[in-house]
Design a protein around this nucleic acid. Structure first.
Lengths: 164, 164
DNA sequence: TATTGTTATACTCTATAACTATA
DNA sequence: TATAGTTATAGAGTATAACAATA
C-alpha cells in the first residue's frame, strides 16, 4: 500500500481559501481524479489516456503519418515515436511504407488493434460513465458545452471538420 | 520556436470520434490549456500550480508539518521536501523547530512570502479570469458546481471544515 | 535545403525505499 | 517500534538537437 492518497483529495479541517474560487484548481482536481481512474480501469489493457487517444485518431484517420499524429496530439515527433512503438509492441499498430514518399510511413491499425479497440472503447466508456455517474444527461451536456468554451474553441469555429 | 503546438489543440479536418463524447477527454483538454496558461502567466514569479497551492495552504493553515502538507496535496513526503525547498529558495517559507516534537518542523510563511503571495494571488486570479472570460458569472457558478460533483465531494460532505 | 523518422540526451515530476534522529 | 524529514534512485513523460534517408 502506498503512502500517498489520491491526488488533491480534500482533507477535512484544512482551509483552502482562494483555491476554492479558482476554476483552474477545480479543473485540475477533476482531471487528476479522472486520469487516475482511467489508468486503473485500463491497466489490464496497458492503455493510458495518450495511447487511447492515439489509437482512436489512427483508427479514424487512415494513412496518417507519424509527424501528423504528433501535430494532432500536440507532442514532439520523438514522443510520437515512443507512443507508436508502444502501440506496435501491443500489436495494435503497424508502420506501412508510403510509395509516394519513401521517407514516411502510414500508420495502420492491425486486425487485433481494431478488434481490441472496440473492447477498450467499451471499457473507457464504462469508466467515463462511472466517474460522471453523479451527473444527469442534461448536466453532462451543460458541462461539455462549458468545457468546450474553455478549451480553446474559437468563436467562429463550428467544431465540424473542414473536410472529409 | 518550438516544433510543438499547444497540447491537444484541435486540428481541422481530423476526426476525433468517441473522444469528443468523453468527459475525461474534455476535462483533460481544458486542464492542459489552463495549466499551460498558468505556467506562462506566473513564470516571472517562478510559481507553478503546485507551488501556488502549497503557498496558499501554508498561509491559511499555520503550524503545518511537512508530512501534513504532503497528505493535503496528495504527494509523497519526498515530493513535499522538494516543494518546500523550492519555496524556501524563493525566500517564501521557513522551517521552524517545534518544541513539542524535535523531529518535525512547522512550515511558516516569511514576511516576503506573505507580501508576495498577495501579488501572486492577484496574478493568478487575473490568469483565471482571463482564461474563463468566455463564461459569464452564472456559467462559472454552474461549472464549479458540476466540477465539484465530479472531483470527489461526497453526498454527505457539506464542504465546510470540520474544525478551526 | 527541407522534411521524415529516429536516436541521444536531458529535464521535470512523481514514486519507492532506505537512512537519521527522534518519539 | 513507529514517525518526521531527508536522501538516493528510478520510472514516466516530455522536450531539444543532431543524424541518415529521402524529397
Amino acid at each position: 500500500m502506498s503512502e500517498v492518497a489520491p491526488y488533491l483529495a480534500r482533507v477535512p479541517g484544512i482551509q483552502y481559501g482562494v483555491l476554492d474560487t479558482l476554476t483552474g484548481y477545480a479543473v485540475r482536481r477533476t482531471q487528476l481524479r479522472m486520469y487516475e481512474d482511467f489508468v486503473q480501469a485500463l491497466a489490464a489493457w496497458h492503455i493510458t489516456p495518450p495511447r487511447y487517444s492515439a489509437l482512436v485518431i489512427i483508427s479514424l484517420n487512415r494513412g496518417l503519418k507519424l509527424t501528423q499524429l504528433a501535430q494532432i496530439m500536440g507532442i514532439a515527433r520523438s514522443g510520437a515515436v515512443i507512443l507508436v512503438d508502444a502501440l506496435a509492441d501491443l500489436g495494435y499498430v503497424t508502420r506501412e511504407p508510403m510509395p509516394e514518399d519513401r521517407r514516411a510511413f502510414s500508420l495502420q491499425l492491425t486486425e487485433l488493434g481494431r478488434a481490441d479497440l472496440a473492447l477498450i472503447t467499451a471499457a473507457v466508456q464504462a469508466h467515463d460513465a462511472r466517474v460522471t455517474a453523479r451527473l444527469n444527461a442534461q448536466e453532462l451536456e451543460t458541462l461539455h458545452g462549458l468545457l468546450h468554451k474553455l478549451s480553446g474553441a474559437r468563436e467562429d469555429d463550428d467544431g465540424l471538420p473542414s473536410d472529409q
